[in-house]
Write a protein that binds this DNA or RNA. Structure first.
Lengths: 336, 336
DNA sequence: TATTTTATTTCAATCGTTTGCAATGTAAAT
DNA sequence: ATTTACATTGCAAACGATTGAAATAAAATA
């Protein structure tokens, strides 16, 4: 690696001390106009750039945010990263990305990586496998601000940003009922995830509102394309199959539509389907998918803003976790 | 921020010098077994973690890779990031992500950010707007290894990893011809991008092979869903509309299918469509899209491996840029 | 016992920048 | 001409860890 131009180089070339150069570069009033311009000129000429690493060491801060996320290759998460990066960029922060790949073990390693990299703060959406949160507690113990988004927990004293999952689910199921569905199934996420619970309870309460009996045997654990396709096949083959489906995400919903078509059922005539996410794929599927917009970009933005706010606070002795809820929206398309 | 435990704390608590502690922690043979175990024990007790920032400064290296990418919210790029992060993770590197959002201006700023953050190397796929590469040249001038992927240029002395765009395009168009298409249109990417050129020439040569005359008026600049949808609408309404379409990416291809359906044309009976990417959406569209698999994950892996290899080299006086081409594959589905 | 060898440990510089305080120089005030 | 004030600049320590060279201690040899 080529040696970068340092403040020392400028100093010696000008016969000055490093302190003077340092002050000149940042317009310290003590420095005479002559030396200031001379320093700045030479700095420009040599292409001097302050060494961030040295500053990091001195200031004990890296202006870097760590992001721990299940998988990037998922529209919702990439939308969130987009929002995060946008805010970070505007505030002159950089983002380090760590994928857990839905693995608890890897997530623990990620938290360590985030620590060794001495990031200023961390944004987390944890893996489906995660039930123990002590690795995140360790971050908090190190006084590194943590903001959870989407996949969050109440067990830790940390800020949260989530979509209004309950409201979204309620809207979705309410919509199905209004469209005439009598028997509505729910393809749910694992119940260790708060989003799994909230969406299930939104489903539950929407049924309740319309005096439809909640049935445990209409709730299925199926939150990926593959599992949902398989489950939908089984369910739709039965005589008394549901006429409405509320899936915990778009991929599962699309899998249901695919399965229905394969079995010769028409969507939305025979069965109606609502997803959750409003991904690109939702607008592409045939018929186009009615879904709940989760506003991933905004969620990312808010999470990052919240973290930056924490980073500005100097005193966190009276820390009170804040929970921000992003309203969701029903997007009606032709699958209902 | 809580002060972290340092080597100094351990030293003073044990009545030793920092040098001894440092050596003890890394099993230096000079250190006596007694002190070594004592140091290690206390280090474990206090939860000592070496300060990476201090090491960064000393070693003038951050074990960090900068990634400059047009947009994360695009399946192909997120697949690439996934591959990159995988390799980086395994080699104990971290990845900093910078989006250009297809903006030249922002891309220039990104290269500056990458410099100030003192990353060890950079992976780049440049924006559609980029025609001038001097900002990347600046990275190279600073002796920061740069590897370009997907969107690359021959103008700079840097490694490249690309999909075999020519071959992919050739396969796609050849397939359309074999399926009986007589008049094949191409929805192309901007021609300042190498991928735009290569895919066009693959299209051109496949026609040539089958003695089909290449017609300029069958090539359209349309590489997004919106532009493609609009173009397809216009084209398909004409009397002598094409019976085959080769689109530069899946989104454009899906837009063509959507437009065709809206105009009452059947796919694949009336027109056949091939995309490029093999995104999640390709498997979801109706009919499912025949496409070229670009192996984004592998492309990301290879690009990162290539960069890491460069980082290991100490002497780059006889630098010879390497270009790695990832073979593509035709994935036949029901749109042809 | 004196001297050499060997095993441990410490000193001090280094990485690049910042900053409180001391030191220098110069011009104004006495 | 001497003191005072003020404007500039330099010194040195600090951030945390590493490392060549010097220093000390202990053990081995003569």
């Amino acid at each position: 690696m080529k040696r970068q131009v340092t403040i020392k180089d400028i100093a010696s070339k000008l016969g000055l001390s490093t302190s003077t150069v340092s002050r000149a570069l940042k317009d310290h009033p003590d420095i005479s106009p002559k030396t200031r311009t001379a320093v700045k000129e030479l700095a420009g000429l040599l292409g001097y750039r302050p060494n961030r690493i040295a500053l990091n060491l001195r200031n004990n801060s890296t202006r870097t945010i760590g992001l721990i996320i299940p998988e990037i290759e998922h529209y919702f998460f990439s939308a969130i990263i987009n929002g995060i990066e946008e805010v970070a960029y505007k505030n002159d922060y950089s983002v380090m990305v760590f994928q857990s790949n839905e693995s608890y073990k890897r997530e623990v390693i990620n938290t360590q990586a985030v620590l060794t990299n001495r990031v200023d703060g961390v944004l987390v959406s944890f893996s489906k496998e995660t039930n123990d949160f002590s690795h995140f507690q360790k971050l908090i113990d190190n006084e590194i601000p943590v903001v959870f988004f989407d996949r969050t927990t109440e067990e830790l004293p940390a800020d949260q940003v989530v979509a209004d999952d309950y409201q979204g689910a309620f809207l979705a199921v309410n919509h199905l009922i209004e469209k005439g569905c009598k028997k509505i199934a729910h393809f749910a996420a694992p119940q260790n995830l708060q989003i799994g619970k909230s969406r299930l309870s939104g489903y539950h309460d929407a049924l309740l509102k319309h005096n439809i009996h909640f049935r445990h045997d209409l709730v299925f654990l199926a939150d990926t394309f593959e599992t949902a396709k398989k489950a939908a096949h089984d369910i739709l083959r039965k005589p008394e199959a549901p006429d409405g489906f509320f899936a915990v995400n778009d991929m599962s919903a699309i899998a249901i539509i695919k399965a229905a078509r394969e079995l010769g059922k028409r969507v939305p005539e025979d069965i109606k389907v609502v997803g959750f996410e409003n991904s690109k794929s939702a607008a592409i599927s045939e018929p186009e998918l009615t879904t709940i917009d989760q506003f991933g970009f905004d969620l990312g933005r808010e999470a990052c803003l919240m973290l930056l706010k924490r980073l500005k606070e100097d005193d966190n002795s009276d820390f009170k976790p804040v929970k921000k809820v992003i309203k969701t929206k029903l997007v009606v398309r032709s699958s209902t």
